[in-house]
Amino acid sequence: MNNFVFWSPTKFVFGRDTESRTGALAREFGGRKVLLVYGGGSVVRSGLLDRVKASLSASGIEWEEMGGIQPNPTDDRVYEGIELVRSRNIDMLIAVGGGSVIDTAKGIACGVPYEGDFWDFYCGKKIVEKALPVGVVLTIPAAGSEGSGNSVITKRDGLIKLSLRTESALRPKFAVMNPELTFTLPPYQTACGIVDMMVHIMERYFTNTPDVEITDRVAEGVLIAIMEEAPKVMCDPENYEARANIMWSGTLAHNGVCGTGRAEDWSSHFIEHEISAIYNVAHGAGLAVVVPAWMQYVAGVNPVKVAQFARRVMGVVSQGDDKSVAAEGIKRLKDFFMSIGMPVTFKELGIDNPDIERLVAKLHEHKGERIGGYVKLSADDTIKIYEMMQ
């Protein structure tokens, strides 16, 4: 096991009606005037935004609004938010929504106190040293951004989708998590979230670091629980207990606990980011296409951990060699994705003629000549992985 630092200071307030505590939580963490960042009309139509505003008013907190954040959030909205926060003397951001909304709020939070271009942080020119506090009222369990220091933004000029990782500066101060707020999520969006959280765990699970049995077992346990709860949620969207388990799984998948003491991979996310940047598909759906192809390719090179995943998570009991066991595990994973309505090919994703040459060129332009940790992948490797998705 490697040396590590695990930092998870977010205060999680979980359960029914917890959105009523938003104002008190904002005040607890120093908020006096906040910017409410949210997405489409669902938080308005459901009355959630009004309940959050009422909670803020009850705690004597003023607010401004910035709505309309879209999936695969873009830099133009971050610039807009930075300008608004600076001009209105706002001292906290509260994201009401899912990963795209939270990531936008984080981009604004680090951009406000910085004299340069916030994009410097995402492209690696600068390290985030300070940021405005961020709070979250979570409505979509998927990205895990409510419990992580990470953010993903797409730069419109060039369609460059990059992730930012911070140890502490961008971890939300609090996250309000009411599973009832997820009852009305469309099935496709629910399934995309399930895949996203599963892959967040897999990116940490597939490692060559030895003697990480504890985090292996934590990762395996959460993955198994997700796959047991997912059919319940898909069948009965208002099953509170199943929704609660899925919501908490999304947080545990990405708050860092599954990655402690080990080298991580992240090549599947890098490969998918180029797909969703160019074709604007749902990130979770893109991952459902990428991951089985990635697993199939790397199992041909280094099957050990893929075979362990097949045996411990996918329930493969065959005593065959690691490559054959891995192949069966990958098949079962694809079957699971399909069972919850996810695509597993480019065509099913709605991309009939993917520009693989462009995808590969952009991937290695943004992430370097070789990507990943479990198996180092060159452009010759990633072109084969993209081709396996067809």
Results as ranks from 00 to 15, higher is better:
residue 311 R to K: 15
residue 61 I to T: 05
residue 96 V to W: 01
residue 207 T to L: 01
residue 223 L to P: 09
residue 40 G to Y: 03
residue 7 W to H: 15
residue 185 L to S: 04
residue 271 I to P: 02
residue 75 D to Q: 10
residue 111 G to N: 13
residue 71 P to G: 02
residue 4 F to L: 04
residue 109 A to W: 03
residue 29 F to W: 11
residue 213 E to H: 15
residue 310 A to V: 07
residue 156 R to G: 12
residue 346 F to K: 06
residue 192 C to D: 14
residue 321 D to F: 06
residue 297 Y to C: 05
residue 54 A to I: 04
residue 69 I to Q: 01
residue 377 L to V: 13
residue 41 G to M: 08
residue 201 I to K: 03
residue 353 N to K: 13
residue 148 S to A: 11
residue 324 S to G: 02
residue 240 Y to N: 11
residue 131 A to L: 04
residue 261 G to T: 10
residue 387 E to N: 14
residue 314 M to H: 13
residue 382 T to V: 05
residue 296 Q to V: 01
residue 21 R to T: 13
residue 5 V to Q: 12
residue 49 L to D: 02
residue 136 V to H: 02
residue 327 A to V: 07
residue 213 E to K: 14
residue 384 K to I: 11
residue 291 V to M: 11
residue 175 A to P: 01
residue 22 T to Q: 02
residue 197 M to A: 00
residue 361 A to M: 10
residue 6 F to A: 01
residue 184 T to M: 00
residue 75 D to I: 11
residue 150 N to F: 06
residue 345 T to R: 13
residue 57 S to Q: 14
residue 100 S to D: 00
residue 256 G to Q: 07
residue 160 I to A: 00
residue 236 D to F: 02
residue 266 W to L: 08
residue 147 G to P: 00
residue 160 I to T: 15
residue 348 E to M: 12
residue 110 C to A: 10
residue 28 E to K: 15
residue 81 G to T: 11
residue 159 L to T: 07
residue 51 R to D: 10
residue 260 T to H: 04
residue 167 E to V: 13
residue 206 F to R: 08
residue 163 S to K: 14
residue 192 C to L: 01
residue 198 M to N: 05
residue 62 E to W: 03
residue 275 I to T: 11
residue 76 D to L: 02
residue 195 V to G: 05
residue 245 N to H: 12
residue 159 L to M: 11
residue 158 G to I: 10
residue 170 L to D: 09
residue 17 D to M: 06
residue 189 Q to Y: 04
residue 127 I to T: 15
residue 32 R to W: 05
residue 65 E to G: 02
residue 385 I to Q: 08
residue 370 R to G: 01
residue 153 I to R: 04
residue 45 R to V: 04
residue 350 G to Q: 12
residue 31 G to P: 15
residue 108 I to M: 08
residue 378 S to Y: 08
residue 237 P to G: 00
residue 143 A to G: 12
residue 310 A to H: 13
residue 133 P to W: 05
residue 238 E to K: 15
residue 341 G to E: 05
residue 177 M to E: 13
residue 72 N to P: 07
residue 53 K to T: 01
residue 133 P to T: 00
residue 168 S to M: 09
residue 187 P to H: 06
residue 357 E to M: 00
residue 340 I to G: 07
residue 332 R to K: 15
residue 239 N to E: 03
